[in-house]
Amino acid sequence: MNNMYEEFGRWISILYRQFQIYINNELKDLGITSAEYIYLIKLYENKELTQENLAEIYYIDKAAITRSIKSLEDKGYIMRIKNERDKRSYRIQVTEKALKTKHRIYDALKSWDDLISLDVSDEELKMVSHIIRTMSLKALNRD
């Protein structure tokens, strides 16, 4: 019999990879990838953020964020504005182009959620979300 945690990790990994494939396909015509859309989501929710804010929100290293932010900027979805208080950092805001694609991104996410949660109750979804969050926080705070 497989180790329970190995099995758990395997299924989380499969779900994550399938989600990436799904989002990449759904947003392909927009040129937005699964590595990029998460930043747009947070920027839609907030007027502006810095790369440091995004690193703290997603627990992703700044180099990975820099690559995605640069790509989104090159595609015209965000603009970086020099931070007057800290010349080494930038304030990041969405552009009009990004605002026009907001509904497409949210629709793709809703479609995915509907697909994977079919026949799963709201109570079960809340429980799974709580468990994964608890385990993730333990993993982040293991030091």
Rank of each mutant, 00 (worst) to 15 (best):
K126I: 00
L15C: 02
I14Q: 12
T50P: 04
I131W: 01
L49M: 13
V120A: 03
K28N: 09
Y90P: 00
E45Q: 15
A108T: 12
K100M: 11
S34Q: 07
K87H: 08
R85G: 14
A108R: 14
K28I: 07
E48F: 15
K87F: 02
R17A: 14
I131S: 14
K102G: 07
Y22F: 15
V94L: 03
M127T: 09
Q93P: 00
T33P: 03
I69P: 00
I105W: 00
K62S: 11
E52A: 09
K75L: 11
I57W: 01
R80E: 09
T134G: 02
L72D: 00
S111T: 05
A64D: 10
R17I: 14
F19A: 10
A55T: 12
S13E: 07
E96N: 08
D86C: 10
L99W: 06
T134R: 09
I65Y: 00
Q18D: 14
I12M: 08
S117A: 07
E36G: 04
K62T: 06
S71V: 05
D113Q: 07
I23P: 00
L115P: 00
K47A: 02
E124D: 04
K42Y: 14
R80T: 03
I12L: 15
W112V: 11
D107Y: 07
L109Q: 04
H130D: 12
K70I: 08
L109T: 01
A64Q: 09
E124M: 08
K47D: 14
